[in-house]
Amino acid sequence: MNWNEIPGFVEVKSAHGETTVVVERERIRDACSYARDELGFNFLADIVATDYLHWGGKGVSGYIGTASGRDLNLPMTQGLQVQPQPKPWRFSVSYHLLALREGAPRVRLQVWLEDGEPVPSVISVWPTADWHERELFDLMGIRFEGHPNLVRILLEDDWEGHPLRKDYPIGGEPVRFSDAE
C-alpha cells in the first residue's frame, strides 16, 4: 500500500507488525476520507490521544537491554540503558483504522499537536467518531473543529481540568507509607 499519496503525508513507521502513518494535523479529515474511499478502510476502531509531557525526563528510567531489542538473556547485555526516542510535540492523536476485507489490514493514522491546537473532526467521515472525540475533549482537553456537540461525556459538566493529562494529579486519598517516588 502506497502511503505517500495520502493528503498531508509526513512519514510512515512500521514496528511490531503495525503501520503508523503520520499526517499533518490540518489535513487529517482529507486523509481519513482518502483512507476510507481510496484505500478501503471503512471501519474506525478507535481514536486515542497520548500526552507526552515529561517524556524522557526524570522518573522515566528507560529500557535496560540491548539497543536493538530485548535479548536480556544473552550474556554481557547488562548496563546498557536506552532512553526513549524524543517526541516532536506534546500530544499525539491516533486513529486506528481497519478494512473489513480479506487479511484485515490495519493502520494507525497519527497527528501531532501542541496544547491548545484544534484538530479537524472526522465525524463527517465516520459518524462513530462523535463520542470518541468527545471523550478526548473531556479527558485530554483536545478541541475538535467541526464537531456539533463537543461537551463533556464521561465527567460531570462542571468538572475543571482534564484528568488524563500528565500534569493532572491522580487524586483519591493519601495512603500512608505509599509515597510515589
Binding site: A45, D46, S61, G69, P84, S94, L98
Partner: peptide, 26 residues
C-alpha cells in the same frame, strides 16, 4: 517493556475489544 506503541484487538462477546499501549521502556 521496550519502548513502542501497539494496538491489539480481540473478539469479545460485545464486539471488537482493543487495547492500545504506549510504553516508555520502563
Amino acid at each position: 517493556v521496550p519502548e513502542g506503541e501497539v494496538y491489539v484487538a480481540v473478539e469479545s462477546p460485545r464486539g471488537e475489544s482493543g487495547c492500545y499501549v504506549v510504553s516508555d521502556g520502563g
